[in-house]
Amino acid sequence: MSDPSRETQAEARARRGRNIALALGLVIFVLLVFVVTLVRLGGNVGKNVF
């Protein structure tokens, strides 16, 4: 009888894929917020007269 606590190779592969996808998603979100901040800030600063 197999040990239910032991992860099979397929489960490990699936978990690794999920983790990479989650990491990519988070990195993309952070980059998006960064780029959006640059665009919004750039536009608003450009409107000001110094």
């Binding site: 397929a10 489960e11 699936a14 894929g17 999920r18 990479i20 996808a21």
Partner: peptide
């Protein structure tokens, strides 16, 4: 049940 792949999400 198969383990969830990122494609399932």
């Amino acid at each position: 049940a198969k383990p969830a792949r990122w494609q399932d999400f």
